[in-house]
Design a protein around this nucleic acid. Sequence first.
DNA 1: GCCTTTTTTCACCAGGTGGTGAAAAGCGTA
DNA 2: TACGCTTTTCACCACCTGGTGAAAAAAGGC
Lengths: 232, 232
Amino acid sequence: MTAAKTRARSGGRGRPSKATGLDLKETILDSAEGLFARHGFHGVTTRQVASEAGVDTALIHYYFGAKRELFDAVFLRRADILNQARSVSMNAYVETFGPRMTVEGVITAFIDPLLRISQEGGGGWKSYFALVAQVNNTPAWGGETMARFFDPVVHQLVDTLKIVRPDAEYRDLYWCYQFLTGSMMLALSETGRIDSLSEGLCHSSDLEAVRARLFAYCAAGFEAVVARSGKA
Amino acid sequence: MTAAKTRARSGGRGRPSKATGLDLKETILDSAEGLFARHGFHGVTTRQVASEAGVDTALIHYYFGAKRELFDAVFLRRADILNQARSVSMNAYVETFGPRMTVEGVITAFIDPLLRISQEGGGGWKSYFALVAQVNNTPAWGGETMARFFDPVVHQLVDTLKIVRPDAEYRDLYWCYQFLTGSMMLALSETGRIDSLSEGLCHSSDLEAVRARLFAYCAAGFEAVVARSGKA
DNA sequence: GCCTTTTTTCACCAGGTGGTGAAAAGCGTA
DNA sequence: TACGCTTTTCACCACCTGGTGAAAAAAGGC
């Protein structure tokens, strides 16, 4: 705990490039990220993380404290980048299209940053998305964790959708988001199930195929729910 | 807790009718199911299962062997019932409506049995669905497990949809199923996230609200994907 | 009653768990 | 060089893990 507090050390100095200090911290986070994504929080031991990072077990506690704090550090590292990318994307869409916004446009602005990052951001991001998908489906502490990190940008999505369809009820918007996030996270986590299910016809790593379908799918579903609610 | 209470009732001081043999086996499965659903495979110890079932640890190994075999037994117990219910539902729909089938009708026949079972089938089913949702999002061995237990009925869905929309490409059908199952499992697992996200406006336990929206949502999404593919 | 089989308990193991404290190794600065 | 600070290693702990073998208790057939 005292060790964890020292993480806010003077970080401005220019250092020679050796695998030490902050570099090692990132290495630990990378290993933890991959392992947590594959096996879940309880399926990974600090010793496994240390071993894969090429580091002593005690060093993990020195940098991060308890195991759960390490997990949170993994989760937090990319959450900010993610939230900012989505927020920027949605704001840009709103400013560019103004009154000509569409439901599919808003949803695209919300989802596409994640697809782009997963495709271009390096291998760590794929692990990260698999991790988030798992947390998203964990009843015990998943909901709370997701809320803590991702609620604001979701509210931004819902509010923007409300602008596009002012007659839509918030209840419907929230349920549609629930459906959307289930599809989106499963697609991003690339579990490989669609590969065997489709007998090689589809590949879960083919995010271009996801892009070509998911936006239209969610948008049409959203419109249908709103229309049905307005009619009933 | 519940299990221990039941056992105390049937095994009271003077009563010869005690929960034994197969009853006890079911009790263990119930406890394991709830715990696995909440904390995942690695988040549960055999001792926790034994404790909640009011049973000695060794008895679990006596009945089920290794921990993983216990998990598979939990998974298998309800899978058959589930698959049969869905298969019957879809066959009935096909026979009743014949050429007048709709996409929304097929999807309803596929999903609604799960909603009904979750609503009417007792508390164990909710745990079970949470468990399946978690496995569905587990990269390491989730895809394989899901395929082993649930692939046939999914192929039945896809084939039936192909009858309704003969021009649809299988690629699209499989991707739409992927989206559908992500939404469906998240809704069925009742993580409670929508409750806090919507600030009390929605409740994840409100499966009637899911029923009123999910079928239309998925059907419209499906139609949009098929239409777009046919146009391009 | 007795004897056999199944079910349940108990004691226990070998190895692994998260975590700690102190010593050691770097390393910039004087 | 020596000093002070951070980073890394090492030995270690108390407890828990999945799992086992044998004894004890029921259950059942005769």
